Computed example of a mutant assay.
Amino acid sequence: MSSHRHNPAREPGPRDAYLDAARACILDVGWRRTTLTEVARRAGVSRMTIYRTWSDMPELLGDLMTREWGELVGSTEILGYDDAGQRGGATPGQIADGVVRAVTVLRDNELFVRIVELDPELILPYLLARRGRSQELILGLLSAVIASGQTAGTVRAGNPAAIARGVVLAAHGFVLSAHTMADDEVSPDELDDELRTLVIRTLNPEEDDR
């Protein structure tokens, strides 16, 4: 199974500057009030320069979300998938720690928070209709970690793609809805502990015997 972990670091280019401008616009005024014209103004380029790169704002947003969240979750530090883990196979606990870290950084990301606060409908297509590029990246990385663990005997048998998708489906709720379940009775940290337990039990080889 292919992994993105050995991809060389990409040097920032003009597109990154344009995406930075779009990000700043969305943080300032929200998605609905952000236009390609305003992105061009903030980036210090002509409107046609932006239009030659993206035909509309939804196309730009797709690239922005892929860069923002794909880079966050795709980093080896968040997934806990280092050279030793690749050779020896990550344990369910290590994978669970990576999932919880990924959920935390996404949940706390200022762009994500801003979109959920002002324009939550932008997230719905990726929950109800289709997978986005960031989700595909996450699934690919997680599947690779799970498959490595299966080879080493640290993760239960099964289709690694299906297992990864089950974990991501569970994680969706902890990214988007954890705040609705946290109160004086249950803390956010306790909820994250429950996610960790859920992932460990999902991946534990001992579950094959039950």
Rank of each mutant, 00 (worst) to 15 (best):
G173N: 12
S134G: 05
D108N: 08
L137H: 07
A182G: 00
L79M: 14
A170S: 04
D193P: 05
D119A: 07
I78N: 02
Y126N: 04
L137R: 13
A178H: 10
I138V: 14
L139M: 08
S143H: 07
L124H: 12
L106C: 09
E68Q: 13
P160E: 04
H172K: 09
L127G: 02
S143K: 13
E68A: 12
F112R: 05
A162C: 08
G140M: 06
V73F: 03
R87G: 06
N159E: 14
L128D: 10
Y126E: 08
V116D: 11
N109S: 12
P125N: 03
E68S: 11
V155T: 05
R87C: 12
P160C: 04
H179T: 10
R114F: 09
V155W: 02
G158Y: 00
G166S: 06
R107E: 06
L139Q: 09
A157P: 06
D184S: 14
T66I: 01
G80L: 08
E68M: 01
G158K: 01
L128W: 07
P188S: 06
L139I: 09
G88P: 01
A161N: 06
E71Y: 06
L139C: 06
G85E: 00
A170E: 00
T66G: 04
D83A: 15
G74P: 10
T151W: 03
L111M: 08
W69P: 02
P160A: 05
D119K: 03
V113Q: 15
P188D: 04
M181Q: 12
G89W: 03
Q150N: 00
Y81G: 00
E110A: 15
G93T: 12
D82N: 04
E190Q: 15
I95K: 00
L106H: 05
V105I: 11
R101F: 03
A178V: 11
V99D: 00
P92L: 08
G166C: 03
N109C: 07
A178K: 09
A171T: 02
A171Q: 02
S143Y: 03
R67Q: 14
G88Y: 13
L176H: 13
V105D: 03
Q135H: 09
G93V: 12
A152D: 01
A144C: 14
S75R: 08
R101V: 07
D97I: 01
T104N: 02
I115K: 04
D193V: 05
H172T: 05
T104K: 07
P125D: 03
T66N: 09
A178G: 06
I123Q: 12
H172R: 11
F112K: 07
I146M: 02
D184N: 13
V116R: 13
V103A: 04
L118V: 12
V113W: 08
R165F: 10
P160Q: 05
I115R: 07
E121A: 15
E190N: 11
P92M: 11
G98R: 00
P160L: 03
G149E: 03
V99I: 11
D97R: 06
G158F: 00
T76K: 13
D108G: 04
T66E: 15
R114C: 14
A96N: 10
L124I: 09
I78R: 04
I138R: 11
T151I: 13
T104F: 00
A144E: 14
Q135A: 14
A152K: 03
T104E: 10
E110K: 12
G74H: 07
